[in-house]
């Protein structure tokens, strides 16, 4: 029984060692930071805007690697968290810039719609006046229908 249990633990340990480290990495600060930086690397439009926080994130990750290389795991983990924070700041900076661009477009469209609305209201006012003029002319030209004779009250 004890032999079987030891074998089972051994198998589990072996499987854990063989399992790809991707999932764990993705959850770690370094993994998250690197994923964000890769995503930002593909975004050429905001490259200049987010250049500084990206550079800071990379610098922190480099120092974290050095710390881990020097067997300073605690300092390495702290610097990885710093790298992740800068990477998230860079990502949200590009999101803010994109939202501001959408805001600019929406404000431009609103301004154009307001101009159109002012013009359309002016045209409508003219048309309503035109209709009133035509109605007045018609009232003068067309004979009014004769008034119905007033009938007496029912007995």
């Amino acid at each position: 029984m004890r032999v079987r249990s030891t074998r089972l633990w051994g198998l589990l340990l072996f499987a854990a060692l063989l399992a790809p480290p991707t999932a764990a990495r993705r959850d770690s600060d370094r993994g998250a930071a690197e994923a964000i930086l890769a995503e930002l690397g593909a975004d050429r439009r905001h490259a200049k805007l987010a250049a500084e926080p990206i550079a800071r994130a990379r610098d922190a990750l480099d120092r974290a690697r050095d710390a881990r290389g020097a067997a300073d795991a605690e300092h390495g983990a702290l610097l990885e968290a710093v790298g992740r924070q800068w990477a998230e700041a860079a990502r949200d900076l590009t999101r803010a810039a994109a939202a501001e661009q959408r805001l600019h477009d929406a404000e431009k469209k609103t301004s154009s719609a307001e101009e159109q609305l002012t013009r359309a209201r002016a045209v409508l006012e003219d048309t309503v006046l035109r209709r009133a003029r035509a109605q007045a002319q018609l009232d003068e030209l067309e004979p009014k229908p004769a008034a119905k004779p007033v009938t007496g009250a029912k007995p």
Partner: peptide, 20 residues
Amino acid sequence: TALAEHSLAAFEHAVVLARL
């Protein structure tokens, strides 16, 4: 120092989040 650096990044991030 690392925690202070992290705090600095977090303040910058908070400013960006406010802008967003």
